[in-house]
Computed example of a mutant assay.
Amino acid sequence: MTLHFDVDAVVLDIEGTTSATGFVVDVLYPYSRARFAALLAERSGDPEVARAVAQVRELTGDPHADAAAVEKTLGAWLDEDRKATPLKTLQGLIWSEGFARGDLVSHFYDDVVPALRAWHAAGLRLYVYSSGSVAAQRAWFSSTSDGDLLPLVLGLYDTGNAGPKQEPESYRRIAESTGLVPERLLFLSDRPGELDAARAAGWHTVGIRRPGEPYYEQGVGDHAQAGTFDEISVGTTRSTA
């Protein structure tokens, strides 16, 4: 069965939705873990690094934490899969460099790229909202086996510029940023808490359920669900500013 939505924009989660969580956990996480120490040592004067370190100190309640202590905290957060903004910021910097060097090539499920290209060609606006930093998202979409997909995407949102993914206010903030009313936005995610928050903000939602993903067995509650992007039809009959 195909799900039909009359919307102006589609907002995409990444892990478990466009791409395999296993790739992030098994490839990207170890890649960043092995490089935290060097990043903290070599780029401590970088404003973005310094800001992330300050955030780690604030979140841990240790204003004097040195680089070793910060690295230990980052490793612990990785083990917990904690969506902490400073962790995602530093991971994004490391991954961006890895993608740029060709060490890393991002993963997309086979059904995703054709759908994104078709939706974009049809005039749909595409956005990304991920717990991964904007820098990581930019690197992810620009470094794929299908080429640079970044031109398909109109805007990137993370927990820093939009807010936590399970809070309705974050989705209201994104809607305001896009200039679209909530009912003209469709959010695709594998996580029921995120889908609940988006719906509470007035958005359309579809839960993506892919076998082998962490939230597959849990399901997506009472949200519409699809196994692939092929099962979703989106289009617009009007434009609402």
Rank of each mutant, 00 (worst) to 15 (best):
M1R: 13
D6K: 08
L12V: 07
L12M: 12
I14N: 07
I14W: 01
E15K: 11
T17G: 07
T21E: 04
T21F: 14
F23E: 02
F23C: 03
V25H: 04
V27T: 15
L28H: 00
Y29W: 14
Y31T: 01
A34C: 02
A37F: 06
A37E: 14
L39M: 10
L39H: 11
E42H: 13
E42T: 14
R43A: 14
A50G: 11
V53T: 01
T60W: 04
G61E: 08
G61I: 06
P63N: 11
H64Y: 06
A65V: 09
A67P: 05
A67L: 08
A68T: 14
A68G: 07
V70R: 00
T73I: 07
L74T: 01
G75L: 14
G75Y: 00
D81Q: 12
R82S: 06
T89S: 09
Q91E: 14
S96Y: 00
E97M: 01
G102P: 11
V105D: 03
S106M: 06
S106H: 04
H107F: 12
Y109F: 15
D110E: 15
D111W: 09
V112I: 09
V113T: 14
L126C: 13
S131A: 15
G132S: 13
V134Q: 13
R138K: 12
R138Q: 14
A139M: 04
S142L: 03
S143M: 01
D146P: 01
D146I: 01
L150Q: 09
L152R: 06
G160T: 07
G160M: 02
A162D: 09
P164L: 09
P168C: 09
I174N: 08
A175I: 04
G179F: 13
L180M: 12
L185Q: 04
L188Y: 09
D190K: 07
E194Y: 09
R199G: 05
H204K: 10
R210W: 07
P214A: 11
Y215N: 11
G227E: 13
F229C: 02
E231A: 15
E231N: 06
T236Y: 05
T237Y: 04
